[in-house]
């Protein structure tokens, strides 16, 4: 575990619109360790999605820099990005969806990569559905397919933007377990944004709490739970509610500040 796997250094970002300048982030500093699962929580509109866009390279910071293993992040470093909705392409079969990234990188004929795609489909129970269209799958399966689509490209960092919020509660708990186990098996480094404090605690090694705009990181809460096997189990840990209260208060304070 290296301490400076991914690092945000004094990152600020402003959006410019006709109405004016919106200062979304102000001097954000934090490090992500390899194989760590970090959640970002904060008041709505505080700039969580913006942080992910910066790390994915979709946005450039107004000042400061994003470093990967000490070097400036560039296109050669694959970052996986998952959104609230699975964004599967309805006109492609599951298999075709999963290899979309390979097609874009001109690796659609690369034997090793295709084998990896097939293996992931097999390992995570979607192989029988590879010739189905997304509309024929349940919400949880679709989300799993979307996850495999990003994993096929072997991302160095996986970004999740409220990936479970479109699911109903029961499904959500199951899909969380599902995704958590896949991420652990594939040894992914994850930065996840969520509104759901329970989800954040049950999935993460650390939870970063943002203030309202212009956002800074208020606190980073390390999570140490008694049970660690799966998010569902972790929710049953005795320390769970203490963490929940802490984080809830922090966010509440942040919201009241304005």
């Amino acid at each position: 575990m290296s301490d400076d796997y991914l690092q945000l250094k004094d990152v600020s970002l402003s959006y410019h619109t006709k109405e004016g300048e919106i200062k979304a982030l102000k001097n954000i500093n934090f490090c992500v360790k390899q194989n760590e699962y970090i959640s970002i929580v904060g008041p709505s509109g505080c700039g969580k999605t913006t942080i992910l866009s910066l790390i994915s390279g979709l946005l450039k910071p107004s000042s400061g820099e994003v470093l990967f293993e000490g070097k400036k992040l560039d296109k050669s470093i694959q970052i996986g990005y998952m959104f609230q909705r699975d964004n599967l392409f309805e006109w492609r079969t599951i298999y075709k969806n999963v290899i979309l990234g390979l097609e874009l990188k001109g690796m659609a004929k690369d034997k090793q990569s295709l084998e990896r795609a097939n293996n992931l489909l097999k390992k995570y129970g979607l192989y029988d559905f590879k010739d189905c269209y997304p509309s024929e799958l349940s919400g949880g399966m679709r989300q799993r397919a979307a996850l495999i689509r990003t994993l096929v490209l072997k991302p160095k960092v996986l970004l999740l933007d409220e990936p479970f919020s479109a699911l109903d509660y029961q499904t959500k708990l199951n899909v969380c377990d599902d995704v958590h186990s896949i991420i652990t098996k594939e040894k992914q480094t994850v930065i996840a944004v969520t509104h759901d404090i329970g989800e954040a605690i049950s999935m993460s090694d650390r939870v970063a709490i943002l203030s309202s705009r212009p956002s800074i990181i208020k606190t980073v809460q390390e999570i140490h739970l008694q049970h660690i096997d799966s998010p569902l189990k972790r929710r049953e840990s005795p320390e769970f509610s203490k963490y929940f209260d802490n984080i809830w208060k922090e966010i509440d304070n942040a919201e009241k500040k304005d």
Binding site: K75, G80, R85, L104
Partner: peptide, 14 residues
């Protein structure tokens, strides 16, 4: 076309 889908394509280097 859905903005998220475009962002997804771009995040995969399209």
């Amino acid at each position: 076309c859905d903005k998220d889908k475009i962002a997804l394509m771009r995040s995969m280097g399209a």
